[in-house]
């Protein structure tokens, strides 16, 4: 469990990004943006899944990953890898959407992509090195 701190720290970064984008979505404001495409991405159809903002889904995922960081055992490590892998794959899908159909890049999404990749890598290491199991 020596990875608890780095996992928690990375999850907190992800929570901050996802919480900000969730706020922007519901407050109907424009995100702070240096890449110029954040609003276009945020208002595209890819910003929601089944009517739920993807930012909110990301927030839920990061909170789950943060909670799992404090639970010992193989089951928690496996659940963490699964959740983080879902995040990585879904982020890849959204990156494809930004580069393709939306044709705009959102800096917050890229920040999330890096963060979820780090969290996933840490959970993989945790799974492979977790004591017991």
């Amino acid at each position: 469990m020596r990875l608890r701190t780095p996992i928690a720290a990375a999850c907190m970064v992800g929570i901050a990004i996802a919480a900000y984008l969730t706020y922007v979505h519901y407050a109907h404001t424009s995100p702070v943006c240096t890449t110029g495409g954040c609003e276009k991405v945020q208002k595209s159809k890819y910003a929601e899944l089944g009517g739920v903002p993807v930012a909110l889904l990301g927030l839920i995922a990061y909170v789950t990953l943060l909670a799992l960081a404090f639970v010992r055992g193989m089951n928690a490590a496996t659940a963490g890898v699964f959740t983080a892998a879902v995040g990585v794959v879904f982020s890849g899908y959204l990156l494809w959407a930004q580069l393709g159909p939306i044709n705009a890049i959102c800096q917050w999404c890229l920040g999330n992509d890096v963060t979820i990749a780090v969290v996933a890598a840490l959970y993989v290491v945790r799974l492979l090195t977790e004591e017991g199991g």
Binding site: E48, L49, G51, T83, V86, V88
Partner: peptide
């Protein structure tokens, strides 16, 4: 094996969600 299974399950889960929910909208 657990790692591979978790990643494979995640890929399948995302594909199913995107296809089912996405095609629904």
């Amino acid at each position: 094996l657990v790692l591979g299974a978790a990643i494979a399950a995640a890929v399948v889960a995302v594909v199913v969600i995107v296809v089912v929910v996405g095609s629904g909208s």
